[in-house]
Simulated scan of single mutants.
Amino acid sequence: MTVPEIDLTDPAVLFDPFTAYGEAREAGPLARMTIPGLGTPWVVTRHEDAKAVLNDPRFELNSQSFLRPPGIPEHCLRYLRTMSEFDGPEHTRLRRLAAPAFTARRAEEFRPRVRRIVDALLDALPAGEVDLLAEFARPLPMEVICELVGIPEVDRPQWREWGAAVAGGFGPAFIEVIPKVVAGARAAVARCTAEPGDDLISTLLRTPERLTETELVTLVWHLVLAGQTPTNLIANAVEVLLAHPAQLAALRADPSLMSRAVEELTRLTGPQLLATPRYAKQDVAFGDVVIREGEPVITALVSANRDPRAFTDPERLDLARTEGGHLSYSFGPHFCLGAAFARAQTEEALSALLSRFPELALAGPLERSPDPGTWRLASLPVRL
């Protein structure tokens, strides 16, 4: 088997991962990735194989899968190990207890509240040119999380600041806000315990078997950490739609396409390029290559979602595409619990934006942040 190499220090990979991973995928189902300081993990590049690995108990998440930046206060550590870091019975238990708050039905019931948040953010945009990433796509998820968790209006400005720091990635600001988010989440759990409302925490507190206080605080942290995905998805989607005027016109002419369009945009330009590393629990044969026990394996969502074995003409944007099965929300036991909420949020954001601003256009060149794990813009200057 030919085993190509992908070098994450190569600017060509950072700024055009679709070509780099696509070439590796067509050379063979496995590649090696060069990550400074982390060795050369295996990379699974094809759709069918990616699904298999994500759903295979022979590949596990463990403490090596998740990096902890230094400097986190000791008293916060017990709140930071989310259900995404567990496998097996403990993951199943946590997911089962949290699932009632994240059903597709609850996401639909929550949609009007998302719509109000979207409209308020659009109302606040200045006339003329604006950075749509900074002024709309970035604040939206944190506003939605605050509404979902039941954070009082008076406390939301500080939560917006915390969300921005978390979205900025590992660094001093990230470390600094962790104890603030933990304290805010503990206060939210205490408030909902004393005075239940129509929010996620109160819903989970009403279940017969429920998460502990620590687990509820951890869930809020998980929402703040993982719930930023729509920021980059919305920005990427706007960029792609403006680059495909015929598809954009078709979507504006038939808003009923929006749900299918969001799935296609998520497949083609979803922000998460790579899944969390998993480790082989035993030797696993992969074609004529053996992945040895203890070796890391990374699923390349960026290439699996454009695999011609799974999607017809996969490099083409087709908002009417009927083929499903993209892996942007993962697959198997760790399929994103909040996927229905992310879809609803993205649909509402794009629907309102496109209907309110029919002359929406780019207002300058676009720059990307060179992030090996996330496909994201540094800014999105547009004329409204």
Rank of each mutant, 00 (worst) to 15 (best):
E109A: 14
D123Q: 08
T218Q: 04
P112A: 05
R116F: 07
E347T: 01
D254F: 11
V302R: 14
P372A: 03
T2C: 09
M142Y: 02
D313N: 14
R376W: 01
A349W: 02
A280G: 05
S202A: 05
P333M: 11
G28R: 12
M258S: 05
R78V: 11
P36Q: 08
G270P: 00
L380A: 02
L8W: 11
L133A: 04
L54E: 00
S328P: 10
I178M: 01
L353H: 10
R316K: 15
R206C: 09
R32P: 03
P179C: 04
R32D: 07
R376L: 02
L251F: 07
I117A: 12
L377Q: 00
I175A: 01
A237Y: 10
A349D: 03
L354H: 14
V114P: 00
L125R: 05
R191A: 15
A344T: 14
G28N: 11
T103L: 05
L268K: 00
A107W: 00
S355Q: 15
P29R: 13
Q272F: 13
E90L: 12
A342E: 10
V302I: 15
T214E: 14
A52L: 13
F15L: 14
T40D: 13
V284F: 10
A31P: 06
G227Y: 09
A280N: 06
V224N: 05
P372T: 07
P152Q: 08
G168W: 01
T322C: 04
P179T: 03
R116I: 09
R316G: 12
V43I: 15
R278Q: 08
V149P: 10
W162Q: 10
A237G: 11
D10H: 00
R252I: 08
V44I: 15
A300T: 04
V220I: 13
L265F: 01
L133E: 05
A27P: 12
R267Q: 01
R113M: 11
E348K: 04
E209M: 06
E135M: 08
H326S: 01
H91E: 08
L122M: 09
L80T: 12
E347A: 07
R292A: 15
R25H: 06
A253D: 14
T193D: 07
I72H: 09
P308T: 02
L301W: 07
V217F: 00
E5Y: 06
A194E: 15
P358E: 07
F170T: 10
R206W: 03
V114A: 02
Q282Y: 09
E215D: 05
F357A: 02
